[in-house]
Design a protein around this nucleic acid. Structure first.
Lengths: 191, 191
DNA sequence: TAGCTGACCGTTTTAACCATTTGGTCACAA
DNA sequence: TTGTGACCAAATGGTTAAAACGGTCAGCTA
């Protein structure tokens, strides 16, 4: 084997998807970037969508690994959850392909990009859901539906990190952590 | 005075905005529907935007009145808040003009419709914020920033009512109330 | 003559057109 | 056997003439 053409293609496509988005990335461009003939791409991937899917799966694994690493046994549930959610959203905010997909959704309505974001979020939610389930079994959290709880936590975080600053001055990382703690962990009921 | 032309115009425009949306509503169409000349509209409203604004203000007053009525002194904070939020979102789900604006945002990106939704939500948030402030003063809630709390509550409700059912079976009104209570009022911390 | 109107104006949007580019194939070269 | 780029139908982008639009105003009518 001289060179791993599959890997070359994935690297080229990944770069192009991040740089120009799904729609603006052409198979010819990918072929040129990877120094392979266009036909070669189709020996590894049935079509453009599947090539994108492959890169998406890598992205998901990446964010999952990063998120996993934030969970530290010695820390409290609150600290762990906050770090977890913040890491995921920082990843979303900083990773080129994520940024590009978000832009592509708002500017055009590219279904592939929409599905991409949805899949990443769904993977994160599954992981978060698992962590919540463990916390319940450990006795750190009250019994509750892990899936719904993960959904609620993630949406609230998303709202504070991405939507709040549309109409208000952005919140500090610390402030978001405190709000998360107050609303979700402690509860608002007067004691 | 024979007929209140201003009122005729507002009724016709309201119908058309609800039926076809902001962009697809033409001033000529409104004039025909109202049985007035096109020029007459411009004796009451400086332009299309102001005509829309007027109808939006009526919509905001309407949702505010309806939401206000859900607050009953004899009921608990939890019951009141839930009824409040649910009423607002039911209004959003059922009112023709709200539905049409939401569609217009997702299908095209009409700025007027986007601003419209934003204004209604902002008015609701202000009202909710006030109610939370009262609850804190009354001692029903812990001290917290009313604006941020209103934002968090509303976003979470929106997420459960509108977004959850994109990927899951929809939640019953009762279930949402319970989740709201568990996450927001009681808190998830093990006791 | 005050209130109302629809023909009219400059601008924007739509639609029809064609040239180019695209994702995907396959006969052939290495 | 593995890899390729010329090739194809389909999709897209650019262009431009025609239609439709928001907004105005001279003149009509009650």
């Amino acid at each position: 084997m001289s060179v791993d053409r599959r890997k070359l293609i994935i690297e080229a496509a990944s770069k192009s998807f991040s740089l120009f988005g799904y729609k603006a990335t052409t198979m010819e461009q990918v072929a040129k970037l990877a120094n392979v003939g266009k036909g070669t791409i189709y020996t590894f991937f049935t079509n453009k969508e599947e090539l994108f899917e492959e890169i998406l799966q890598e992205l998901i694994k990446h964010v999952q690994r990063i998120a996993q690493e934030t969970i530290l046994a010695r820390d409290s549930f609150h600290d762990n959850m906050h770090r977890f959610l913040y890491t995921v959203l920082e990843f979303r905010r900083e990773h080129d392909l994520m940024i590009r997909m978000t832009n592509e959704i708002t500017e055009m309505g590219t279904p592939a990009a929409k599905e991409g974001i949805r899949k990443v979020e769904s993977a994160v939610l599954a992981l978060l859901s698992m962590k919540i389930k463990e916390a319940i079994e450990r006795g750190d959290l009250r019994p509750c539906d892990p899936e719904r709880t993960a959904f609620a936590m993630f949406r609230m975080y998303l709202a504070f990190v991405l939507e709040w600053e549309v109409t208000h001055p952005p919140l500090e990382k610390e402030e978001i952590a405190n709000l998360f703690d107050l609303y979700f962990v402690e509860g608002l009921a007067a004691r």
